[in-house]
């Protein structure tokens, strides 16, 4: 073997080792991002939750609010309230790959467990739309209560749960045949909603309370929180509630159904998702145009990151891979 060939072989091996190291590194550092709709500037900020930096801003339609991440399709679905359409973002490229016109203002958006469908609350028409994530055609639409807002998917019961803001009700529908299974009267002005295992959580904005509904026996617990609760989620036997006019979140112990702590956020916190990789809460602040990062271990805020004007991100907005 000539010296030249030996050198070439050495170079090749060196490159192979370097590329292996890179592959290894990318595996220990998983993709972990938040997609934050900025309603005041028609963009989505992509926040890297490992480095706590904003990677980029993606231009979308007019007044984006709702967001749903569909990991099986590598997509984020963004609902644009004023342009009445959806912006579909490819999560590998972080680019809008299509814009889907709707004849209504999309509010809440959620995907089912397999990700083959998304369900959208249609604000003005008092309907829920079911869309295929294959081509985003409307598969079905059905009437619900007045001004349907938050929407969530319950995997255990294969059910769609909807908060009807001006009807003060929560409705539970079958996710395949769209039949109404149950209607529950809750507090005044229910807006954000989530569901986990057998529980449904809904924020009663005008009552400064949340309702926790047990789907096994339909028992409802009402818990006092802060000013103007906007959304509520469950994570490991605790509920986390954004208090939009309290500028804080409430932590509720789900064993005792008591508030155990309030943590300050930015101004007008609205929505909330869990960063499971780093064990943190991510809260969007409409007033301060930012997200607040809260460590779940210490229950203390660790950072506030500027995202964009009127950050809202209504829905589960974190993508991990």
């Amino acid at each position: 073997m000539s010296i030249r060939n030996k050198l070439f072989l050495l170079l090749l091996m060196g490159m192979l080792i370097i590329s292996l190291i890179f592959t290894f590194l990318s595996q220990i550092e998983p993709v972990n991002r938040a997609y934050i709709t900025n309603q005041g500037e028609n963009t989505v900020s992509v926040v890297d939750l490992n480095t706590l930096s904003v990677d980029q801003r993606i231009a979308v339609g007019s007044s984006p609010l709702g967001v749903a991440i569909v990991p099986s399709k590598n997509l984020a679905v963004i609902g644009n309230v004023d342009s009445k359409n959806l912006s579909i973002i490819n999560l590998d490229k972080n680019k809008v790959v299509s814009t889907i016109p709707l004849d209504t203002a999309p509010l809440g958006i959620v995907a089912n467990a397999s990700g083959d469908k998304v369900f959208i609350t249609s604000w003005f028409k008092n309907q829920v739309l079911a869309l295929s994530t294959h081509d985003f055609s409307v598969l079905h639409s059905f009437s619900v209560g007045i001004t349907p807002s938050g929407i969530a998917f319950n995997e255990k019961y294969n059910a769609i749960v909807v908060a009807n803001r001006d009807a003060d009700t929560v409705e539970i529908y079958d996710a395949d045949n769209y039949k109404l299974r149950k209607k529950v009267k809750v507090g005044s002005h229910p807006y954000g909603i989530s569901t986990n295992s057998s529980f449904i959580l809904v924020a009663n904005v005008y009552d400064d309370t949340i309702s926790i509904i047990n789907m096994e026996n339909w028992v409802q617990k009402v818990i006092k929180v802060g000013f103007y609760p906007y959304n509520a989620i469950v994570h490991e036997e605790k509920a986390y509630v954004t208090n939009a006019q309290g500028d804080n979140i409430s932590i509720i112990d789900l064993k005792t159904f008591q508030e155990i702590k309030k943590i300050n956020t930015g101004e007008t916190p609205e929505n909330i998702s869990i960063d499971k990789i780093n064990n943190r809460l991510i809260v969007t602040n409409w007033g301060s145009d930012s997200v607040t990062i809260i460590d779940l271990q210490t229950q203390e805020p660790i950072a506030q990151i500027k995202t964009g004007l009127q950050s809202r991100a209504f829905g589960q907005f974190i993508y991990t891979k």
Partner: peptide
């Protein structure tokens, strides 16, 4: 007071 449109307005 009972209801409002979907997009809150902001002056800051």
């Amino acid at each position: 007071v009972l209801a409002h449109g979907p997009t809150p307005q902001k002056v800051q």
